[in-house]
Amino acid sequence: MRRHAGVGAIQKQRLQQEKYREKGSEIQENQFQQMSKQLEVFRENLEEFATKHKNEIKKNAQFRRQFQEMCAAIGVDPLASGKGFWSVLGIGDFYYEIGVQIVEVCLATNYKNGGLITLEELRTRLIAARGKAKIHQEITNEDLLVAVKKLRIFGNGFTVVPMGKGKWLVQSVPGELNLDQTLVLQKASGLGTAWVSISILIDDLGWTETRAQNALNHMVKEGLAWVDTQDTKETLYWFPSMFSECVAA
């Protein structure tokens, strides 16, 4: 076999490899698109089956498991009942389903909102995750409130706080499990100032104003923080527990 030599051969080889690579990524891209299409088909079909054949699916234990596996793989919610006749009376699975989905949305988002979410956002997210079908769009804020009410027997770990003007705030993390105060303290000691303000929490930790205000109010109530209104711009919150450290530093 003739050996290629010289700059031309090297360049030719490089060109060839380049072409192969291009082709490879093209094939991959193609395959990916096909897969995405199949995913869509799957999703549509599963959503439809979940709505239409719920009871039949429930009856067959083995199939129920398989159906669940498919839904898990594709990311389809098998809980997709509409608001039926019975749900008006508070019977039936509809409100339980919504309840499960509400808690789920809260859990999925609490890493960034600390367990506080407005009812509006909750509804948007819940509907988006439920699917595209029309019956899902018809879920109202009132439905959500009814569903949350059913969680009341768990004590006040999961509560809805009215904000006035038909606005609601859903709090999904009970005070005992809320790490926000710890984060505030970490921030204050990190700054070495022994105080923080709401704007610092908003800017540095990326919190919403409600979240910051809530955490600080709690700390004032618990006696962990002192309020200082002397600053011209905004209220400062001092932490007496840090005074000695800061003075010593």
Binding site: A73, V105, R125, A128
Partner: peptide
């Protein structure tokens, strides 16, 4: 979607 991902995870622990 965070929620969809979380859902899929929860359901996989059937």
């Amino acid at each position: 979607d965070d929620t969809v991902r979380f859902k899929a995870y929860l359901m996989s622990l059937g």
